[in-house]
């Protein structure tokens, strides 16, 4: 089984710790993970802002970089959802525009192999107890694309509940969007900030030490808001919790 890590451009550039945690976690579970260096970005920011044609080279690059791997694992709900939901749409539109089936074929080849991290753990590896140790109270915010586009369901919380020492605290209004939304955060900053402030208030009200998500782009907005509001709650990616062991704290 050849497994590739799609680290995502946000993690690569801003949150390399998360990528390293995925490598550590998967290796602990006996998976030899590779990092094809030709990878870059799924193109979500371009596509969701309306620049479909700018996204196309990135779709081709993604398919090329991950050619030959059995599984592509992404520690990001929204990047995995971009590949699974939107690559086929990009392919279909190109075909409808009379530009052949190259992009549609590229999409079809990567869609079934692309998994968000918790899907890969639960569905492909069949584990919920990854042997992690994280002695903190944690509240979980289900990010929108993981929740509603991928349908992650209770996979993340099943994994978290199996972590030794971890106390999972319910988050009020958990399923409401944090207000990030990519360029939405800047284009509609007033509404985005108001949503972020409400999310931060709910998170702080749990009294948890950390807020966990499967998506560092949302986390950048949530963490940035928490820190600006002086909240003591730390943002942490689920990979970093699952990578933690008694011997090695992340």
């Amino acid at each position: 089984m050849r497994v590739a890590l799609f680290v995502t451009c946000v993690n690569d550039t801003l949150y390399p710790r998360t990528g390293r945690a995925v490598v550590s976690l998967l290796e602990r579970l006996g998976v030899e993970v590779e990092f094809p260096v030709e990878q870059s970005c799924c193109g979500q920011a371009q596509f969701n802002s309306g620049y479909r044609h700018e996204t196309e080279p990135l779709v081709r690059r993604f398919a090329r970089a991950f050619d030959g791997f059995d599984h592509i694992v992404a520690p990001s709900g929204s990047c995995a959802a971009m590949v699974r939901d939107n690559y086929p749409r990009i392919g279909a539109k190109a075909r409808a525009e009379g530009r052949g089936s190259e992009l549609a074929d590229a999409a079809a080849s990567v869609v079934p192999r692309t998994h968000e991290l918790t899907e890969f753990l639960v569905d492909v590896l069949g584990v919920t107890d990854v042997g992690a140790y994280y002695p903190h109270s944690v509240t979980y915010h289900p990010t929108c694309h993981g929740l509603r586009m991928l349908g992650l369901g209770d996979r993340p919380t099943r994994l978290l509940r199996a972590v030794k020492g971890l106390e999972l605290v319910d988050l009020p209004g958990a399923e409401e969007c944090c207000g990030f939304g990519g360029t939405f955060a800047v284009k509609n900053s007033a509404v985005s900030s108001a949503m972020g402030a409400d999310k931060a208030r709910h998170i702080t009200s749990t009294g948890a030490a950390a807020v966990c998500t499967v998506d560092n782009s949302c986390q950048m907005h949530i963490g940035g808001t928490l820190s600006r509001l002086g909240s003591p709650v730390r943002p942490v990616h689920i990979a970093e919790i699952l990578a933690s062991t008694e011997e090695e704290q992340w």
Partner: peptide
């Protein structure tokens, strides 16, 4: 529009790649 209400994340010394 970002930094009016949100702190920016600290840049890491080294990228994942």
């Amino acid at each position: 529009a970002w930094t009016d209400t949100r702190d920016i994340p600290a840049l890491p010394a080294e990228s994942f790649r």
